[in-house]
């Protein structure tokens, strides 16, 4: 290679560039970057010592694995495409819907107060249902039982707008899901799924997001798969998407039959994955690629 560089300066640059692309990739991209996430003057926790029982020493928000252009979009609400949905969600909050003639605001008043911290605790144990429920299921439960309105589809614009709006009221608060008591068996179920290899590629969540985070998988920088920023705006989707949509996409990538959106497997997995990010700041709606 060295002799070729001497022979042709132009070719030499190309060779150096390519050698660097391969060799320097490790140096330049290994691990998360050191940038700090600040939104509206508030600093967000994107890194902290791992919670008890975590396989990591340190946990990182997925934000730390994105490039600076993507990071910058999340740092300014005007540039964050997810805020279109936050605004739609705010309008839906006080819009009367359903046979009871009520809106969310009829009971919950000011979301800035009543919805503060809600996202951070999801999925949450629901005594009446006898199982944990996600934010989407909580919203639809309220719509059906209290508003007497039709449930929204999981990935509909209305649902994404409402989860983004409610989620935004927990921004900067630490993820804090319950894992003990009645949640314990669900947490165990989620953990089992996390480590189970499935699909034609025979991979588990852990194979990439635990054993190989920080490395490049082709053009993608593998994160720890934290879910503190959902719903998240992905440039790949060109819109917001739910946690379960992301799970589904991962499963299809490894050519596995995805579990049902909103089904027990994904709820258990959501709980377990959320618990791996205890203490990270809620970033909903975050921006990723």
């Amino acid at each position: 290679m060295a002799t070729k560089i001497l022979k042709s300066k132009r070719f030499g640059y190309a060779v150096v560039g390519l050698a660097c692309a391969a060799a320097c990739a490790t140096a330049a991209f290994a691990g998360p970057n050191d940038n700090k996430l600040t939104i509206d003057g508030q600093e967000y926790v994107t890194e902290l010592p791992a919670p008890e029982g975590s396989p990591f020493d340190t946990i990182y928000s997925g934000w730390r694995f994105r490039n600076e252009a993507t990071q910058a979009m999340e740092m300014d609400d005007f540039d964050n495409p997810g805020f279109t949905n936050v605004e739609s969600g705010e309008a839906l909050w006080s819009k009367v819907d359903g046979e009871a003639g009520k809106s969310c605001a009829s009971c919950h008043n000011d979301a800035a107060e009543s919805m503060k911290g809600v996202r951070a605790q999801m999925p949450k144990w629901n005594e009446k249902a006898g199982k944990p429920v996600t934010l989407e299921q909580t919203i639809n439960g309220c719509r059906e039982n209290n508003l007497k309105a039709k449930p929204w589809k999981w990935e509909s614009n209305e649902m994404l707008s409402m989860t983004a709006f409610i989620g935004s009221k927990s921004r900067g608060m630490p993820v804090k899901v319950q894992t003990d008591g009645p949640m314990k068996s669900w947490w165990e179920k989620g953990k089992k799924l996390y480590y189970t290899r499935v699909g034609q590629l025979d991979m588990s969540c852990a194979g990439c997001h635990e054993d190989n985070y920080g490395k490049m998988i082709r053009a993608d920088h593998l994160s720890q798969g934290q879910i503190n920023g959902f719903p998240t705006y992905r440039s790949k989707w060109q819109k917001l998407g739910s946690i379960h949509r992301r799970f589904k996409g991962c499963m299809k990538n490894i050519r596995a039959q995805p579990y049902e959106v909103g089904g027990e497997e994904f709820v258990a997995l959501e709980l377990y994955v959320a618990s791996r990010g205890q203490g990270l700041s809620v970033e909903s709606p975050s921006v990723r690629n």
Partner: peptide, 8 residues
């Protein structure tokens, strides 16, 4: 495999 997509 465990739970492959049907087409595979």
């Amino acid at each position: 495999y465990t739970d492959p997509l049907k087409k595979f």
